[in-house]
Simulated scan of single mutants.
Amino acid sequence: MIVVGLTGSIGMGKSTTAQMFRDFGVLVNDADEVVHELYRGEAVAPVEAAFPGTTKDGTVDRAELSRQLMAAPQRLPELEAIVHPLVREKEKEFLSRSADAGAAFVVLDIPLLFETGAEKRVDRIAVVTCSPELQRERVLKRPGMTEEKFAMILARQVPDSEKRKRADYIIDTSDSFDVTRAQVKAIVGQLAASKGDADA
């Protein structure tokens, strides 16, 4: 089974692209969705212990957690030390289920793929990109987003130019949905062909 890591900096259109892979019948494990689930489950107690006041009604209050981290960015590794191992476990379960189901290839949607060393766990890398101007426009439209928060997020991410250099596939979302979908379809076709060659 070929494991493709899908990544891209904030605002590049990664979530939309991941959905396109799903539309073509590819199994996708979305790390952000997994974190949302963990924030309603296994991560609640350890996050509250490390960051008191960040949970309520049995879930992590993301806005409060974000507020605390903006005030003390140096504590981010503490949160990652709690969350990343739990995400890895869920990822392993997904890969195991997908292999059992006979999937030829799957996609791991990992926002911080290079930043967390996850490229070692995948066979191919697909990077979603767009122009810096379009990226900024998309991100600043998000609720609660500020220039300061955007700058903090960008500072944590490997630059887009570096990601593109390390990619096996580049998906440019600067144009229409149809143009993006055609790029995804081409990649799915290449993966199916390469898997067929490997099995032959």
Results as ranks from 00 to 15, higher is better:
92 K>C: 00
66 S>R: 15
109 D>W: 02
143 P>I: 10
52 P>W: 12
197 D>W: 09
83 V>Q: 06
82 I>Q: 09
130 C>R: 03
4 V>H: 04
173 T>D: 08
104 A>M: 02
91 E>H: 11
46 P>D: 12
149 K>Y: 03
152 M>V: 00
1 M>R: 06
59 T>Y: 01
91 E>V: 03
168 D>S: 11
172 D>M: 10
114 F>Q: 03
149 K>T: 02
121 R>P: 00
73 P>C: 11
36 H>R: 15
128 V>S: 05
17 T>L: 04
11 G>W: 02
163 K>E: 07
84 H>R: 12
154 L>S: 12
35 V>K: 06
92 K>V: 11
73 P>M: 12
106 V>C: 07
135 Q>C: 08
73 P>D: 10
162 E>H: 05
12 M>P: 01
100 D>G: 11
176 S>P: 03
99 A>R: 15
147 E>M: 09
92 K>I: 08
11 G>H: 03
36 H>W: 01
141 K>S: 13
72 A>W: 03
166 R>S: 10
196 G>V: 04
97 R>Q: 15
34 V>N: 02
140 L>V: 06
175 D>F: 12
70 M>T: 11
44 V>L: 12
1 M>N: 02
133 E>A: 15
83 V>C: 07
200 A>P: 04
26 V>N: 03
14 K>D: 02
61 D>M: 05
178 D>E: 15
56 K>P: 00
59 T>A: 14
200 A>V: 08
133 E>F: 05
90 K>Q: 15
101 A>W: 02
50 A>T: 11
71 A>H: 05
7 T>K: 03
142 R>K: 13
132 P>A: 13
79 L>M: 13
124 R>V: 01
117 G>F: 09
184 V>H: 08
87 V>Q: 07
23 D>F: 00
156 R>Q: 15
79 L>V: 10
40 R>W: 00
146 T>R: 11
24 F>P: 00
39 Y>G: 05
58 G>K: 09
91 E>K: 13
40 R>A: 15
180 T>N: 08
78 E>A: 13
99 A>I: 02
37 E>N: 13
20 M>Y: 02
40 R>K: 14
126 A>V: 04
164 R>P: 00
63 A>K: 15
195 K>P: 00
61 D>S: 09
160 D>I: 01
18 A>V: 03
179 V>P: 00
70 M>R: 13
8 G>D: 03
79 L>S: 09
3 V>F: 01
185 K>L: 14
